[in-house]
Computed example of a mutant assay.
Amino acid sequence: MPEAAVIVAGDTRVVFRDLGDGRLEPVRVRTGRRADGWVAITDGLQPGDAVVTSGNFLLAAEAKLRLGIDQW
């Protein structure tokens, strides 16, 4: 997936899964190899899961303000 889709918070890696109807879910993932702006996701998502690939920084900031990072 595009590296821009992965939010790095210390040792934690988070992506936002698109649940449809404007709903998003933060999901902790494990990343693997990186190359040319892409990163492998080795754990946390299922094949076919749709994720947000742009605007993630704003989503993460809003989620942290509303819920607190510990709830991720």
Rank of each mutant, 00 (worst) to 15 (best):
M1D: 02
M1W: 02
L58G: 13
R30S: 14
F16G: 04
R13E: 02
A35C: 00
L24E: 07
G44K: 02
W72C: 08
R66S: 11
G55E: 10
P47Q: 09
R33E: 13
S54M: 10
K64H: 09
K64Q: 09
A61L: 10
A63D: 11
R66G: 05
W72S: 05
V14R: 03
N56G: 14
A4K: 08
V14G: 03
L67H: 14
G48Q: 11
G37Q: 10
D43E: 15
R28K: 15
L58R: 13
I69T: 10
A35L: 10
V6A: 02
V51L: 08
A61N: 09
V51M: 09
S54T: 13
V29M: 05
A40I: 02
V6Q: 00
R28G: 07
V52R: 13
F57R: 12
W72V: 15
A40F: 00
D70A: 12
R13L: 07
K64W: 09
W38D: 08
P47W: 06
A61D: 11
V39R: 01
S54F: 09
E25D: 11
F57G: 09
T31A: 01
R33F: 00
R34N: 01
D70I: 08
R34K: 12
R28Q: 14
T12M: 15
A4E: 14
D18A: 10
V29R: 04
T53K: 06
S54R: 14
L45W: 07
L24I: 11
P2I: 04
L58S: 13
E25Q: 14
L19A: 10
G44N: 05
L19T: 09
L67D: 14
D70T: 11
A9C: 06
A5S: 15
V27C: 10
L19V: 03
D21T: 07
G20D: 08
A4Y: 00
A60E: 08
D18P: 06
Q46L: 13
V29L: 03
V52G: 09
A63Y: 15
F16T: 04
R30Y: 05
G20Y: 05
A50K: 14
G22E: 05
V29W: 11
V52H: 05
E25V: 01
P47G: 12
A60K: 01
D36Y: 06
